[in-house]
Design a protein around this nucleic acid. Structure first.
Lengths: 147, 147
DNA sequence: CCTTGATGCTGAATTCTGTTCGGCAATATC
DNA sequence: GATATTGCCGAACAGAATTCAGCATCAAGG
């Protein structure tokens, strides 16, 4: 959620509770692990990393290795997931430009077990938000109508 | 960055500045657009959406349409990017389970222009962090050594 | 070299927020 | 009916955010 920069009093006004009540609720949510860390979202372009890409990494056998985990040392790497499907791992990376992306990829290829990669360079981002609190329970039977 | 929950005094200790100085710098970074919103990161599993997947969406012609943009109305959809490559769009989605993912995908398929999709269901997440402030300038010529 | 202006920092002060705690109400259990 | 639990509120206190005057540094102009 994006209220993390607001005061408990301001949030309380929205949900009809006092500041201490909001404070206690948030405390419980943190303790339950629902709420994790509080972060400031940075702008990729403004931090000198305008080029976002998703990199699919194919590996022989089981992909996870200590070497591959070392990729986390690069601040350009934001996400690393192992996936089911025709690829082994998906990385979300953000680099200074094509050359930096190439540098990053070259770090991948010297890792034993990595056989191929496919990069999907992002042209435009239409949505980028963190985990949302809500869950859809009543899926529409028909598609959402165009307004 | 993850200092967003720290006080200006604490951050100041780390960087050798007073709290007001940190405050003014952060103010400038916000104004410059480097720092965006302050958010609390929620845990997918704890919010009832343990199943993370990347969905590649193929479209005829140019993929972006108003209908496709309507997918943002589902809280399950966290990211939407158009990409260069053999697919048109990549979505990062987080659902309650395989059935909910299917529901979400079914919303995709009734959109004119959407021809195919491929879902990469995440098995494990090894790294998940926001945009990092740092940029790698000196790429190692050789891969990072294993410790 | 001196003067002026701009920039950014510090410390103090003020204002605001976070946090604790006692009291109370509602609900559940025995 | 009594007791325990849960969660909220208001008051109070501690800590943090924010403002502001003063100062230091640096750059530009005369």
């Amino acid at each position: 959620m994006e209220d993390a920069g607001s005061s408990y009093a301001r949030i309380g006004e929205k949900v009809g509770l006092s500041a201490p009540a909001v404070f206690e609720r948030v405390k419980r949510l943190r303790h339950a692990g629902v709420i994790g860390s509080i972060i400031a979202r940075l702008d990729g372009e403004a931090t000198g990393k305008p080029l976002l890409a998703f990199v699919h990494v194919d590996t022989t056998g089981w992909g996870k290795s200590e070497r591959l985990m070392r990729m986390r040392e690069f601040p350009e790497v934001e996400e690393m997931h192992s996936v089911a499907g025709d690829t082994g791992m998906i990385l979300k990376v953000r680099t200074q430009g094509p050359q930096a992306l190439e540098h990053l990829l070259s770090q991948l290829y010297v890792i034993p077990g990595v056989t191929a990669s496919r990069s999907y360079v992002v042209l435009s981002t239409y949505l980028d938000r963190p985990v949302q609190a809500d869950v859809t329970l009543d899926w529409p039977e028909h598609p959402l109508p165009v307004e």
